[in-house]
Amino acid sequence: MPAVAWGLEILRATVATVLLFTFLAVVAAMFGVLAERKISGWIQSRLGPKHVGPQGLLQTVADTVKLLQKEHVTPVNADPVAFNVAPLIVPVAALLAWIVIPLGVPFGVLLIGRDLNIGLLFFVAMTSLIVIGVLLGGWASNNKYSLLGALRSASQMISYEIPLALALLTPIMLAGTLSTVEIVDAQRGGFLGVGRWFLFGGGHGLGGLVVGVLAFAIFVAAATAETFRTPFDLPEAESELVAGYFSEYTGMRFALFQLGEYGELFAMAALSSLLFLGGWHGPGFTSTLWLFVKLFAMVFFLMWVRWTYPRLRLDQLLNFTWKGLLPLALLNVLLTGWVLV
């Protein structure tokens, strides 16, 4: 490829990545945190934040300003390299996973960082890198509660990666490709515009319906556990082990951990709406708008679940994945193969 085309491609990729990360910082972190507080208030029969800005919309801006001017405290015997690198790994890995998530086709232009032909494998690989940041953050804090919280968090994350990847195999097998854009394209058309959604089995009849719903349920359960949300948030609940692996982090580093978690939450919601709910296909509207409608519906659902259920204990949580979700996911892969033949 001649040098000019190569330079242009690098420029396009850089601009797309900067736009993507800005979108994530504004929408996912700011809007997500505010939405969480408002929704939790609504479910608990109280008003959320309402003083800062109209209806409390500038609350997260105020929070960010507060966090920026806090002092950077490093514990005395902490390993400085690990302590400073850990809050970088978590958001960077979560943001890297966004590169393969397409945001619609407005006016025929595909909005995506890069449409890799191993897109879903890249996504699962990037989310599995978050565990390293969690472990290093807990270890480097030189605090036994942080270490225990980090070991629990890391063991929960790696246990739930397996049903997550196996549940993703169902839309991959139904579409025959690992690329996210092609999986969305395979769900176009159908009965009432929703007939070929992979949630309903992509047009394969009753067997497809069973397989699709099961895969969606397993994916949402595993995604809830991966992003440490109730009912799987034992490692970072405030009443357990102080705050888990990020107890010793102050100011902007704490904000970076939160950015990583909300970015991952939005990535899982986006992926479930792309893979199971038809992506950006919908009657009438422009494609990006439909995708955002589905994305925010999924995010609302995940937040609704958070404020409804009590949390599971760690051994109940690990039993649930190793003895429940994993055999179910394997059975689901087998059934998908049977349905397709």
Binding site: I118, A125, M126, L129, I132, L135, E161
Partner: peptide, 29 residues
């Protein structure tokens, strides 16, 4: 590219994590 994806998923995402776990559990650090 497939081997590259599997390398990140298994080596950097699982084996390196396992090594970190055992280092933390045996106080090697």
């Amino acid at each position: 590219e497939f081997v590259a994806g599997i390398q990140v998923l298994i080596y950097a995402g699982a084996i390196a994590v396992l090594i970190l776990f055992v280092i933390m559990l045996t106080e090697g650090g």
